[in-house]
């Protein structure tokens, strides 16, 4: 068998390792990607500074950053960020837990799926914002109704992700587990869970993305703090710089939380053939 080993080793040695090359490629992509917004922002800044444009409705970047800086300096920005973040996380957590459990129950057998799935698909076709009046009647206008709305938004992608992932687990892989006489519980833990993990994490990221969408809607329906409140406030007081500062913060927070979720899941997915981090 030594001969086989030697031959395999020779094959390995011949395959190039391309990590530095990939890194510089990533750098180039980053520069290219950021080029357009930077050029536009600099151009606008220049135009306003030279008096070619007014910049009243569309403030130049410097003023947006100034507003952001002032908000941060007074501590107000952090209060709003914290309020929004808390809502997103609470709603995301609730929606994810519910979506996971219901998805697992529906995926457990054909009969549970046939009982649960049609109703949930029906509910899913209701635009989630349509629930707002009902949630306000049931839960009041404070945190509860907001979190409920975000949770509903997160629920469906997670539910669909779990159900779909379970449905596509390969019978052949399950048979390997059966051949080694795994119990039902072991089968779930050692075969099913790892098999559905990639799809599940994708669903979580979709859920989180929707959570960020729905928090804005939730904060529009009346809030005294939160980034959504900053948006509404900026509109009512005619402060476009505050609106844009808030939008910018949303973008950054959304990217960061998604990045954290992706990074937290990466160690579990190194085995994946097609694993290419999407950020």
């Amino acid at each position: 068998m030594d001969a086989i080993q030697q031959r395999d080793a020779a094959v390995e040695a011949a395959s190039p390792v391309s990590s530095p090359a990939r890194k510089s490629r990533f750098g180039a992509r980053f520069v290219l990607g950021i080029l357009l917004p930077v050029v536009l922002a600099a151009g606008w800044e220049f135009a306003v500074a030279k008096g070619y444009a007014q910049g009243r409705l569309m403030p130049p970047p410097s003023r947006i950053f100034k507003t952001l800086y002032d908000l941060a300096a007074t501590g107000e920005l952090w209060r709003h960020i914290f309020a929004t973040l808390a809502r997103v996380l609470a709603g995301f957590l609730l929606g994810t837990i519910a979506g996971t459990i219901v998805g697992a129950i529906a995926g457990a057998s054909r009969i549970t799926k046939e009982i649960l799935d049609p109703s949930l698909q029906g509910l899913r076709s209701v635009p989630s914002i349509a629930w707002v009046p009902l949630f306000i009647l049931w839960l009041g206008i404070f945190e509860e109704s907001k979190i409920a709305l975000i949770a509903v938004g997160c629920f469906f992608p997670v539910y669909l992700g779990v159900l779909g992932a379970i449905a596509t687990v390969d019978r052949k892989t399950v048979e390997v587990g059966r051949m080694f006489r795994l119990s039902q519980f072991q089968l779930v833990r050692r075969i099913l869970l790892p098999a559905i993990l990639p799809a599940y994490i994708l669903a979580l990221r979709q859920g989180l993305g929707l959570g960020w969408m729905f928090v804005v809607a939730a904060e529009f329906m009346g809030a005294s703090e939160g980034l959504g409140y900053l948006l509404v406030d900026g509109q009512q007081l005619g402060k476009p710089d505050q609106i844009l500062a808030s939008i910018l913060t949303f973008a950054i927070l959304g990217k960061i939380t998604d990045g954290l979720l992706a990074a937290a899941s990466t160690p579990f997915l190194t085995w994946q053939d097609a694993f290419a981090p999407k950020n």
Partner: peptide, 26 residues
């Protein structure tokens, strides 16, 4: 499936989330 009977499938059917050693020790 019986503990005294082993089966090698027509395809490898390795579990992609386990290393070679963990697959063998499955």
């Amino acid at each position: 499936p019986h503990e005294c009977v082993g089966l090698i499938f027509q395809e490898p059917r390795l579990l992609p989330w386990l290393t070679v050693a963990d697959n063998v020790g499955f």
